Computed example of a mutant assay.
Amino acid sequence: MKKTILILDDEVSICMLLQNFLSQDYDVITKNNPLEALEWLDSTIPDLIICDIQMPEMDGYGFLTKVRQRGFTKHTPVVMLSGRSESKERIKCYRLGAQDYLTKPFNPEELEELVKKNLYPIHYAIEW
């Protein structure tokens, strides 16, 4: 059974790109609206969430906070995705409970490694 990844980004092209990279190995669900994603999370718990920071209605920080406040998704790994590479942005995400931070434009190999690291943390390394 494939692991499920929720991708949340208001840019449809980014969702399609991420889905293209990940759908061979994972069940990928895309949402373009944080409120819609939160509603979806009421009935489903993904194995990983990849979330953009800059979105209308609710930004990624607000979404991450809501995810961490919910009992069922409290421990779901979250990778934040942003066009901003400043250290203060990363630190803010980590303090809100994100496991990782990926800067746009991203390297597909780095994306793949972050996904593996977060879905299979103990068995991540190819060689010990």
Rank of each mutant, 00 (worst) to 15 (best):
K2E: 13
I5L: 04
L6Y: 00
D9N: 12
D9R: 00
E11M: 03
E11A: 07
S13G: 00
L22M: 08
Y26V: 13
T30D: 11
K31F: 12
L35Y: 14
E36H: 15
E36R: 07
E36L: 15
A37F: 08
E39Q: 13
I45H: 02
I49M: 11
I49E: 12
I50K: 05
I50G: 02
P56C: 02
G60S: 04
G62I: 04
F63H: 04
L64E: 01
L64N: 00
K66N: 10
K66F: 02
K66Y: 03
V67C: 02
R68W: 04
R68A: 01
G71E: 07
F72E: 11
V78D: 04
S82K: 04
S85F: 15
S87E: 15
K88T: 15
E89C: 01
E89W: 09
E89G: 05
I91F: 10
K92G: 02
C93K: 10
C93W: 06
A98G: 09
Q99S: 14
Q99Y: 07
D100M: 04
T103S: 08
K104V: 06
K104S: 10
F106T: 00
L111I: 03
E113S: 11
E113P: 15
L114M: 07
L114S: 05
L114N: 11
K116L: 13
K117G: 01
L119D: 01
Y120F: 15
E127A: 13
W128E: 14
